[in-house]
Design a protein around this nucleic acid. Structure first.
Lengths: 191, 191
DNA sequence: CCTACCGATCGGTAGG
DNA sequence: CCTACCGATCGGTAGG
């Protein structure tokens, strides 16, 4: 039995927040998950709100990194969009707790933190918008569709993936990503 | 100042649950919203959990009624699908609090209630699946697309509508519904 | 990381 | 619907 790290505490908090919600989680609950007392958590972090911030910050940065990679590696708009879709799916499924907390519990951050996280989210979503816009400009996507709405549709689908998808099901992650890209690109009348 | 009804209490609870979450709402918070004391709520309802049940039951029945109407009034699969989409949008925007609580707080119901609500939700979603399946069978939709996935996509988009749409924006509800139907039906290669 | 707490708040009740 | 509570639990701290 070695001492827990701050990262361990944050990971545990993410799991609890994702399943029981921020307000549904007590420091004692969290301690029990970690095998320590609730009060012992304060040896690692300043408080419950600080844990929420740390978990959500993690979630936000996974998405940010994914977008950066998609933009760097993408070869044209539909290629970039595919990478964005695959990357988002991976973040949501490989970092379920942090991603879900980021997506569902941001309202419970203190206002200043909330503003920062909202900013990060807007920048992330803007990458989708910009990519689609570029696809329209370059003649790859249907110019008659609303760019903004198309981005909202894709993101709505992506943000709900963890609610129904399981790696242990018959549908593989790659097959799903392919289907979703097809659905989206057909909707955009990709050429 | 007349006495509040049980329905008033449930409406107030829905608003609080939708914005602050079930666990983020105290009976005293709710009382304050209603202009009474937290303890006075117990003159109307048995407890907090009973309020959650009542709010979610309302939300679930709005969706159920919408699906019933769509099936009754629809003239063929793509017509029914359009009615389902428009109906879902209306429920989510005209009954924001109940719909959002239904969609986000069901995990906090006692297990027996949770099972019932999950059943209602599955029956509702099955209407989407069946409608799309019928569209494929009748040659209206692309048979190469997964029916299940298409239903998941539409529902994912619909369930997030209240997060970004506002009736006071430039985009009207009808224009949005039209765009979404177009997006979905194009994805389904509707003929 | 535990012991031993603290004041505040929680859901809820008895009696009117 | 209010007054006046109750025991339980909450986030958090002092001291080791």
């Amino acid at each position: 039995m070695t001492r827990l790290s701050r990262d361990d505490i944050i990971t545990g908090a993410g799991r609890r927040f994702a399943t029981h919600g921020y307000h549904g989680t007590s420091m004692r609950d969290l301690g029990e998950d970690l095998g320590i007392l609730g009060s012992s958590i304060y040896a690692h972090v300043g408080g419950k709100q600080e844990l929420l911030i740390a978990v959500i910050e993690r979630g936000a940065s996974y998405f940010e990194e994914s977008a950066d990679r998609a933009v760097a590696d993408g070869d044209g708009p539909s290629s970039t969009l595919r990478l964005l879709v695959v990357g988002h799916i991976d973040v949501v499924l490989d970092h379920r707790a942090e991603a879900r907390t980021y997506l569902s519990e941001t309202d419970f951050l203190e206002v200043s933190e909330q503003a920062r996280v909202t900013g990060m989210r807007q920048r992330y979503e803007a990458v989708f918008v910009d990519t689609i816009r570029r696809g329209v400009a370059e003649g790859e996507f249907d110019p008659d569709r609303s760019v903004r709405l198309s981005a909202i549709y894709v993101l709505s689908i992506l943000n709900a993936v963890d609610r129904w998808f399981s790696d242990s099901g018959a549908l593989t992650r790659a097959a799903f990503a392919h289907d979703l890209c097809g659905f989206v690109l057909e909707g955009l009348n990709a050429t």
